[in-house]
């Protein structure tokens, strides 16, 4: 138990230490976004790496998230004879919380760790030093394309997660709970359209996508920052990768809470 808490403490400490440098890196990289067009090729590469490559995993996880939600809540709701509420619970739950959260976790594990390992390897093999001597800023050359790509891709993948998750819920509802798919989908749309924001976009969807955007920025920045701070060969790269995943995880959850409380209180 004590070991567990000391581990928790160390983890939090690591997260704290990196945060200052990470915030600074974010500022410098954000300034470089104006050079986006010049780096469009790198940006396209990163859009593919961050958006297309994790897609299969995202699809599977999204489908089963929706199915699990339907199964668990469905069984409970059925006991109270309220199983027709299931559609709105799944729709709202996915769009508000589960969609962005699951997507962010998948991207942290797959893309964020990859960013840290890639940049960390470049750091320990003197490639970053070489860039600096060529007066090429790593935050422009390496970090900005990843940052922009993740900021674009995370909301898109979250949207995919929402849709696929809802369909997964539909599948379970239809087969296990005997709810007609048309009825289910109609309920989802109804519950989402209760509160609308700009341009008729459902507020619950909108807040989820804003969250996803922030998560994407966090994952890219934390991964890059950990990579740039790597030192000491392959072991250092491993350490950087691990700490980037831990920091992203913690930040996604903490920031997610505050965003929820910002949007819904």
């Amino acid at each position: 138990m004590i070991r567990f808490f000391s581990f928790l403490g160390r983890t939090l400490e690591e997260a704290m230490q990196g945060t200052g440098q990470t915030v600074e890196l974010f500022g410098r990289a954000a300034l470089q976004v104006r050079h986006c067009w010049k780096r469009r090729r790198f940006l396209l590469d990163q859009l593919y790496t961050c958006g297309i490559r994790p897609l299969p995993v995202v699809l599977v996880v999204a489908l089963f998230t929706g199915m699990i939600l339907a199964l668990q809540t469905g069984i409970e709701l059925d006991r109270f004879g309220a199983k027709d509420r299931i559609a709105s619970i799944i729709g709202l739950g996915l769009c508000r919380e589960m969609g962005p959260f699951m997507t962010a976790l998948i991207l942290t594990a797959s893309v964020g760790s990859g960013i840290a390992a890639e940049i960390g390897t470049m750091k320990v093999s003197e490639e970053i030093d070489a860039l600096e001597i060529l007066s090429i800023r790593p935050e422009s050359f390496l970090v900005m394309p990843r940052l922009v790509a993740m900021a674009i891709v995370t909301p898109l993948l979250t949207f995919v997660t929402d849709i696929v998750g809802i369909l997964g819920g539909c599948l379970v509802s239809a087969t296990r709970l005997r709810i007609a798919p048309e009825q289910y989908l109609k309920n989802v749309v109804e519950s989402l359209s209760e509160v609308l924001t700009y341009g008729g976009l459902p507020k619950d969807l909108y807040t989820g996508l804003v969250k996803a955007f922030v998560f994407g920025v966090i994952i890219a920045t934390v991964g890059s920052s950990a990579g740039l701070r790597a030192s000491g060969g392959a072991i250092g790269v491993g350490r950087a990768t691990r700490s980037s995943v831990i920091q992203s995880f913690v930040l996604v959850i903490v920031v997610g809470y505050y965003l929820t409380s910002f949007f819904y209180t």
Binding site: T121, M122, S125, E126, E127, D129, A130, L131
Partner: peptide
Amino acid sequence: LFQSSALIN
């Protein structure tokens, strides 16, 4: 010229 050449991989 770096000892490791430091070409961008």
